[in-house]
Design a protein around this nucleic acid. Structure first.
Lengths: 190, 190
DNA sequence: CGCGACGTTGATTTGCCTCAACGATTGTGG
DNA sequence: CCACAATCGTTGAGGCAAATCAACGTCGCG
């Protein structure tokens, strides 16, 4: 939590009331591998800020295949933002891929922080800008790169993620099957 | 411009200084069909808010194929946000698809508004949240839907866009070729 | 040990791409 | 006002990348 507070303080002046408020709506948690934080179909009450480890959000389609929307490592937020924004039930599941540390926020109360402590806006805007830009890049990559190229880029973006993420999760992020990714990897080792 | 100012005023109290500032960094423009507002390779100095018509942003890959990142209709911002955020040259081109009305903002000065007039933060945060959610949906659709389903959804999202957007632009947004889209359309009319 | 999780490999199918040719429509200049 | 080119959409034939279906190897663990 200190880490999170310091991140904010690097960007703006945080009153002690705002800091207290942040503490009051959050809770540090250590998450074991495989733990599910948000379950598809449930009401989404929480948003998570990752301080260590790695989580992912994914949806499951009719045929049971999983599609990974996001891997969240240190400094990224994760939740089902679609559900929160539209006030719907979760279409995504959020689970941890390895033992992780997160700060759990009550999503509604986090939404109130802007009214109570407007100085917080700048912090979230910068997170949103960063997030938006990474999504734009992802879409462009998906449109113009081959599966092979997307995989190479993925390894650059998440240099040591391979060691603890199963390949089929990477495949589901890249939009290909586990088997295709395996063949791409085999290709490279020749 | 009044339309834009009123949109803001619906969300927050706008001081007359802030309003003056907005006027000082912006310019209303009528854009003819085909006009290019941002050219790939150039420095990105402007951001646009669309009040009427339709623009699109796209990148051109090595083989010359175009890939549409965004269609911007009324109430949406459009620019090369990747370039602005990373302080790079434009990788995108922004052009109008039909005669449109936009408000052109100096991107740097728009960035200063948060310091000079922090009340503006909430407005932009909401735009960013909306934008982020639509990008999340787009990625999920791309991962789990067939080309056919993506096209159906596109028509629902942009009900009358078909009338003035050439099909090959829609195809380049959906991630398929013009010919494939044509076959999908033929399929439906049987 | 035996089971489950994960990755690989092979055979076949399929959705989409590529290349190519051909209408239909629109706009423009002679 | 017509001829012509340009733009856009369609259709066909063939090929390829990735999906599917299926089997099998390996590792770690209860």
């Amino acid at each position: 939590m200190e880490y999170f507070i310091n991140k904010i303080k690097n960007l703006l002046l945080l009153t002690s009331e705002a800091e207290d408020f942040l503490y009051s709506i959050s809770k540090e948690k250590v998450i074991t591998k495989g733990e599910v934080l948000i379950q598809q179909g449930d009401v989404v009450k929480k948003t998570y800020f990752v301080t260590d480890g790695c989580l992912r959000s994914f949806c499951t389609d009719r045929s049971g295949k999983e599609h990974t929307l996001q891997f969240a490592i240190k400094d990224w937020w994760i939740s089902d933002f679609i559900a929160i924004y539209n006030n719907e039930l979760a279409t995504l599941t959020v689970e941890s891929i390895k033992e992780s540390k997160v700060i759990e926020f009550n999503a509604n109360e986090l939404n109130n922080i802007y009214i109570k402590h407007p100085e917080f806006e700048a912090f979230q805007r910068k997170n949103l800008e960063r997030h938006m830009v990474s999504l734009h890049k992802r879409i462009l990559n998906q449109l113009q790169l081959t599966a092979q190229e997307r995989y190479d880029l993925f390894l650059k973006q998440y240099p040591d993620i391979e060691q603890y993420i199963p390949n089929y999760h990477i495949a589901s992020y890249l939009g290909i099957t586990q088997q295709s990714l395996s063949r791409i990897r085999a290709e490279k080792n020749n």
